[in-house]
Design a protein around this nucleic acid. Structure first.
Lengths: 202, 202
DNA sequence: AAAGATAGTAATCAATTACTCACTTTCATG
DNA sequence: CATGAAAGTGAGTAATTGATTACTATCTTT
């Protein structure tokens, strides 16, 4: 029932391609993913990829769009289910960690794209994703301040940087441990410290 | 007076090579640094590099060793100059940020090495560096607890993960902003939140 | 079922990569 | 100053990369 079909309509084939790249990124260095490797994973010839994408960067761009959509919608859902801003922040954090646990290659690809010196389309996608993420955090911070849950003197930008860095730190630890579940186990403890840093002095 | 000399003894040539790579990593994607680019930066032919290093990975390993030595010695110096564990943590943090500001390519190379799937020599160097870094943090955490500056119930591993992640978050922000000085400006604000998260309730 | 449109194959391309080597230049030392 | 070792040159290699193309297979529509 899966992608075992030989002929697929263009749109489906593009979707399958994106999933293949996300899978591969979880298993190997994202910057070493070749078009040949992608095609092999899909049971396709390398040349066939270029029927559906004009070049390799277009594939990576599609992946980044996929990530932006899925991650932001998950986060929005997590935030929406919580009553208070602080609870929403924790829910958002754990939703992000869950997302990464399911797709360990995502944060590596993101960081890799950000590092590229040329201004490529996938790099721009990565940048805007993180900007949108930061703006969402800002709104929660403001809400938290007005309802008194968060420290009124909290620097929003610094708090956002630390929020994202917290996740990045967990990713690094799991890279060193070579174990993805390491991240989910430690996430609550790490967030507890972060929370202590931003909430109002009770 | 500098590396403008044509003929250099092997040891010096190796040192110059490492510095060239560190420079290049600050200007472009570290995973795209070629041996040709390194040689060009040094005003040397590509073949000459392989007189001093058996292969490319040996060059990268030498770079990681350079990083480990310089970073750890700087941090040790920063810690030593401070009276209390909490002040030492802040000094260590700022020393690390200064180091990265001077060599923006370092954190990118480190993260890039950690991502490699094969167990290469430079990857192992990166792993042990971060482990040593974590152990140093642990000692400071323990000291902080016994002298009452830090929360007695603080989870050391989580606090170390967050410390490293905090720096990684700053690196990401500076990558997006495309501006290294961004990091140094925001570092104190971000550390203030972190400090609030780990210190004992006064 | 015929025919046009869509999707995939397999071979090939030029460019780039890390690495090698026969030869030349430079330097230090007796 | 001569000489041998060390350091650098420059032209190579084989392998890999993203991309192209002539051709074939499959699907859809009338």
């Amino acid at each position: 029932m899966n992608s075992s079909n030989k002929h697929l309509p263009a749109e489906e084939r593009r979707a399958v391609t994106v999933e293949a790249v996300v899978e591969l990124a979880g298993e190997q260095n994202p910057s070493e993913i070749t078009t040949a490797a992608i095609a092999k994973r899909m049971g396709l010839t390398q040349g066939a990829l270029f029927r559906h994408f004009p070049n390799k960067d277009a594939i990576l761009q599609a992946v980044m769009e996929w990530v932006a959509e899925r991650l932001m919608s998950r986060i929005e859902k997590a935030v929406h289910a919580e009553p208070s801003p602080l609870a929403a922040l924790e829910s958002m954090f754990m939703a992000h960690v869950d997302f990464i646990t399911e797709h360990p290659g995502i944060p590596r690809m993101l960081f890799g794209e950000l590092q590229r010196s040329e201004e490529t389309a996938p790099k721009r996608m990565a940048q805007t994703l993180i900007r949108r993420y930061g703006e969402r955090l800002n709104r929660l911070f403001e809400q938290g301040k007005t309802c008194g849950e968060l420290d009124g003197k909290l620097d929003n930008e610094a708090a956002a940087t630390l929020f994202i860095g917290t996740i990045q730190g967990l990713v690094m630890q799991s890279l060193i441990a070579g174990d993805v579940s390491h991240m989910r186990r430690n996430a609550p403890k790490v967030f507890a410290i972060y929370q202590r840093g931003i909430r109002s002095a009770s």
